[in-house]
Design a binder for these strands. Structure first.
Length: 426
RNA sequence: GGUGAGGUGGGUGAGUGGCUGAAACCACCGGUUUGCUAAACCGACGUACUCUUAACGGGGUACCGCGGGUUCGAAUCCCGCCCUCACCGCCA
């Protein structure tokens, strides 16, 4: 959620920024309305506080009068206070309504894009900042099979069994498929540790406060599985529990950056998805992912973003996959992000680019709701910047590895994984 | 699932209706003393909102799990909810 004071102090910049997200000129009225409502909030607040101060003062006097036995004067004062309290009640109602009204508007505003983000309609306007095709496969003498065929042929993933025990979108990994999956998780976690991230194994179910603080609620309620009986949500990404570990904290500047990494399965309902997008591992309801999170000093958060982008790129290079990096345009960026780089790998048999990572700086958009702040010495606490990225999403990486490394006899495993899988071929 | 106890500041913990934003102790921070360290002593030590000030700062309000209620006045009394702990049962 946007911070109202920042919004007030930078109205023009906020408006310009939000227009890059395809919001029309009416956004100017929205911002003006927020400021006007907030002005009213302040006025009411001040008035209310003054009345409450009066009540407190008189109440103390009543106490004194009682002690000195002046009952009738106390009674007079009492009736005065009762009158004031009636007015107080009204003001409290007005204040609560005004605050609610402001929040209702602000909560629907997406994050203000970073300066470097270009306006754009959607995915077609994203800018490819880098493309590395040196590991593009050449299938000589074979017809390349899509990964779902390879998975069946070599008994790696059983989609039908998944349907039997759960439903579509819940693949069963088995044999070397399961080992490859485990090896990839292990590899990603090792690399994260190497890069200085603390490894975390968080709960996979979270409560409502947690889902709200990172912005899944109310925005993406329909995307999450919900356990009604216990009021818990299955996490759609490790970002949710990892970032919430620090909810409400006031850190010292010297404690920044906080670097966390975690492997979790991710659960997504993917309501409304259909077609070739959901075939095989391209889009499933449960998939594995290693996520990296950083909580950073606002002064350095864009360096941190670069560092995280470099980390993800390094992983893809080690896996010997063709990839490209996209800087998302305003129209394609997530609601909470200020700047996002997407990573796609080329899955050569499908002849498709698959998104395997999204690395974002949320600036204070998340920390505002998380109430996650830092302090330098005895300064006032201020909001931190939060960042996260997938490093990496497993299912699609698996798809690309299988498709790109196939030959007539099987599938070659990237060298860097051999020590994790225990085999070099499927 | 059953029964009981309890949720107070970074921590321990006092406080059962009135100058209590909250004792005391510990931790943290600043200082004094001191070959160094430790100890001792002194001081500061919450957050949010808001008003005021050029600024340093000062004033007000709210917050003792959360939400309501009673009262002139609530950490303290009442109601609802949430959570934690202990014991029993079940169990990886």
């Amino acid at each position: 959620m946007l911070d109202i004071n920042t919004l007030r102090n930078n109205q023009a910049a906020v408006i310009d920024g939000l227009k890059k997200r395809n919001l029309g000129p009416e956004i100017e009225d929205v911002i003006a309305k927020i400021v006007k409502l907030d002005d009213r909030r302040k006025t009411v607040q001040t008035e209310l506080d003054q009345q409450l101060a009066l009540v407190n003062l008189k109440s103390r006097e009543i106490g004194e009068l009682f002690k000195s036995g002046q009952q009738d004067q106390a009674a007079t004062l009492k009736s005065e206070v009762v009158e004031i309290k009636k007015a107080v009640k009204d003001m409290e109602t007005t204040l609560a309504q005004t605050i609610l009204e402001i929040e209702t508007i602000v909560i629907d505003l997406p994050n203000v894009p970073h300066n470097s983000v270009k306006a754009g309609k959607g995915a077609e306007d994203n800018e490819i900042t880098k493309e590395n095709l040196e590991n593009m496969p050449r299938f000589e003498g074979i017809t390349a099979l899509p990964h779902w065929d390879l998975a069946e042929k070599y008994n790696l993933i059983d989609f039908k069994l998944g349907v039997k025990i759960t439903g579509s979108g819940f693949p069963v990994f088995r044999g070397k498929g399961a080992k490859l999956e485990r090896g990839l998780i292990h590899f990603f976690l090792s690399e994260a540790s190497e890069a200085g991230y603390e490894e975390i194994m968080p709960p996979l179910l979270v409560n409502e406060d947690t889902a709200r603080a990172t912005g899944q609620l109310p925005d993406k309620e329909g995307q999450m599985y919900f356990v009604e009986k216990d009021n818990l949500y299955l996490i759609p990404t490790a970002e949710v529990p990892l970032t919430n570990l620090l909810r409400g904290d006031i850190l010292k500047r010297s404690e920044l950056p906080v670097k966390l990494a975690g492997y979790t399965p991710c659960f997504r309902r993917e309501a409304g998805s259909y077609g070739s997008d959901v075939k095989g591992l391209n889009r499933v309801h449960q998939f594995d992912k290693v996520e990296i999170v950083q909580v950073a000093d606002p002064a350095h958060s864009y360096q941190v973003l670069d560092e995280m982008v470099a980390h993800v790129e390094m992983l893809l290079q080690k896996l010997e996959l063709p990839y490209r990096i996209l800087r998302l345009c305003g129209g394609d960026m997530g609601f909470t992000s200020a700047l996002t780089f997407d990573f796609e790998v080329y899955s050569a048999a499908q002849e498709k680019w698959l998104e395997v990572s999204s690395v974002s700086n949320f600036e204070t958009f998340q920390s505002n709701r998380l109430k996650l702040r830092f302090r330098d010495g005895d300064e006032k606490p201020q909001l931190v910047h939060t960042l996260n990225g997938s490093a990496l999403a497993l299912a699609r990486i698996m798809a690309a590895i299988l498709e790109n490394n196939q030959d007539a006899e099987g599938v070659k495993i990237p060298r860097v994984l051999h020590s994790f899988t225990g085999f070099d071929r499927i």
